[in-house]
Design a binder for these strands. Structure first.
Lengths: 103, 103
DNA sequence: ACGATAGGCAAGCAACGACTTGCCTATCAA
DNA sequence: TTGATAGGCAAGTCGTTGCTTGCCTATCGT
């Protein structure tokens, strides 16, 4: 019975965009940021001049991939990084006997 | 001094396509396959009915990302999997103190 | 209640990516 | 040498995607 990697689809597509990877970098540094915080820090620290909606759509992609969880609190929405989906996606192609594969 | 992940760009884009991931699956199972072999096995084992050129272009993407190495021998061109670029791309977002991250 | 702040929805656009088609080159076997 | 096999190159199509723009809802402070 072959292994099915169906759930990995969204994760790989989410990771394909450099802006989304920068967002994950931001959340790795500090969890629980709001949309406006992420926008500001992407501008100041990475030089990305993107609209609020662009970031919002990226966050939606990351969330539907399971890489980001969000919790609403009043008018704020805080975003947390979730690395769980990353765990299975690389070991998929690692051969047990090959050298130099020390994750 | 911030870390630069420039070389990861091609790797993530290469992994974003499901067909390319199937190709990596094939090469994980058996190294040194030719283009026609990969075509045949994608059809029979994964039900993918793609043209030879489609697979060829996918292999070019994988090769320029460093995930596949190729060696020419007569009229054959053999393809080998190279997992080295995969080593740094996931640990990027893993926090050392978080639970459940046992790669 | 009112304005300001935080965020969402939807249509439109421009660029990219996957795939096909057609034709060409190179190597091997007879 | 001729035909068959393995692969490469380039243009064209078509769906996807990243981003913008405009407008709307919800919550908070005063």
């Amino acid at each position: 019975m072959p292994i099915v990697w169906g759930m990995a689809e969204d994760v790989f597509k989410a990771l394909a965009d450099p802006t989304r990877r920068h967002i994950l970098d931001e959340l790795t540094e500090r969890d629980g940021q709001t949309l406006f915080e992420i926008c500001a820090r992407l501008v100041t620290k990475h030089g990305l001049a993107l609209s609020r909606q662009a970031i919002s759509q990226h966050l939606a992609v990351l969330e539907s991939a399971g890489l980001v969880h969000s919790r609403r609190q009043g008018r704020y929405k805080f975003h947390d990084l979730n690395t769980e989906p990353l765990e299975c996606i690389v070991t998929r192609w690692l051969r047990p006997d090959a050298p130099g594969e020390h994750l």
